[in-house]
Design a binder for these strands. Structure first.
Length: 367
DNA sequence: CTAATTTGACCTAG
DNA sequence: CTAGGTCAAATTAG
């Protein structure tokens, strides 16, 4: 256990350090003479670093019961976690017995939205698989939306009382955009949430091999008869955007994260073993840490940290939220990444204790 | 056979 | 009252 923690810490430090240096690089490029691309590139890298770091903090620190008030994201995340700490847990208990109580709690549950864009355009789209087993329990036509919304809950709801649920809906006009809203956290012990390392036993898609399998259940529209075959989507061009939202609160605006999993540049690599399974464990603040087994968590860390890595800024375009209707109150600060990221991330930076003493020349990075 | 999905009824919040 | 979310019986898939 400590081993993984150590590794994690190192990764964290490494990421932060990198972010710091990148920021310095960026400062060099602030002069108008610098190329915009260079700046974009740096920005993207910085964001990626922070994102990764934050995620690590989320899991590692929190599980270890260490309410680090570090960064904005963490903070905001944390807040929803505590917004209904025991209610979620007790709910599950009560749920079985009290039955209809669910409706009430619905409101208090933390949730966050992940926007998945599949740029493949091959016609076969499917939401990314987050590594958990979901079971569809409902579908609803949503007002103003052309596509129905699918409701999923964790398969282990009964066996382990896992309350995690998610909703999947795809954008009206942009069929390539899926909005996945997660609710609650997984309290179950899933075999191997990270398909990257080990494919889940039940879904053994050998054809999807090394790539992260997105054998997501078909949460589809009725035009598609049976997408069972391959919902395999071309990864090279997936973009995932994650938004955190706390119900009712708007001050913890944490801008959406963009994970340009675009393999960009180097053509088709298999390098992009990305998954969008990151947010899974972000909200465990309120749950007993026991539900995560060391090994499980470890693999989680892995898949998560793998994601934003190759985000080279150049080919990057922010998958901004379709101005249409992104469900409720999704924080609309999507352009932050390209437009004014620093501003939004400002808090993060200072809280992380940016070391301003570092000399402005780092040979390490840049080009 | 078991497990997952479908689908309309039901329930709640706004 | 309406829209969104969930339940649960019926159906389908593995």
């Amino acid at each position: 256990m400590e081993k993984s923690m150590g590794r994690e810490n190192r990764t964290l430090i490494s990421e932060l350090t990198q972010g710091k240096e990148l920021a310095k690089q960026l400062s060099h490029h602030l002069s108008p003479s610098s190329s915009l691309e260079a700046r974009q590139f740096l920005l993207d890298k910085i964001l990626s670093s922070y994102e990764k770091s934050l995620s690590l903090l989320n899991w590692g620190a929190w599980v270890a019961d260490q309410p680090k008030p570090t960064v904005g994201i963490v903070d905001s995340t944390h807040s929803f976690a505590i917004s209904s700490p025991r209610s979620e847990v007790s709910d599950q208990d009560c749920k079985e017995e009290c039955g209809r109580d669910v409706y009430k709690k619905r409101k208090t549950q933390s949730r966050w939205t992940e926007q998945v864009k599949v740029c493949s355009g091959t016609g076969l789209e499917g939401p990314l698989d987050d590594g958990f087993s979901w079971r569809k329990y409902g579908q609803k036509d949503i007002l103003g939306a052309n596509f129905p919304r699918g409701y999923y809950r964790c398969t282990h709801r009964h066996s382990q009382g896992c309350l995690a649920t998610k909703q999947v809906q795809r954008s009206d006009e942009d069929r390539s955009i899926f909005e996945v809203t997660y609710r609650g956290r997984h309290t179950c012990n899933q075999a191997s949430p990270s398909p990257v390392a080990s494919p889940s036993p039940k879904n053994d898609f050998s054809k999807q091999s090394k790539y992260h399998c997105k054998q997501q259940q078909q949460q589809q529209n009725q035009d598609k008869p049976k997408p069972t075959e391959d919902i395999f989507v071309n990864f090279g061009s997936d973009c995932v955007q994650v938004k955190n939202e706390e119900l009712g609160s708007k001050d913890d605006i944490f801008p959406s994260f963009s994970f340009p999993c675009t393999s960009f540049g180097n053509g088709d690599e298999e390098n992009n073993i990305f998954t969008e399974s990151m947010m899974e464990n972000s909200f465990l603040g309120s749950f007993s840490p026991t539900f995560i087994s060391p090994e499980t968590s470890e693999s989680n860390y892995f898949s998560m940290s793998a994601c934003p890595l190759n985000s080279f800024g150049i080919g990057y375009q922010n998958v901004q939220t379709p101005e249409s209707e992104l469900t409720t109150e999704i924080i609309s600060a999507p352009t932050s990444v390209t437009n004014s990221p620093i501003g939004d991330w400002d808090i993060s930076i200072e809280m992380v204790d940016f070391d301003t003493t570092f000399p402005f020349d780092n040979p390490d990075f840049f080009a």
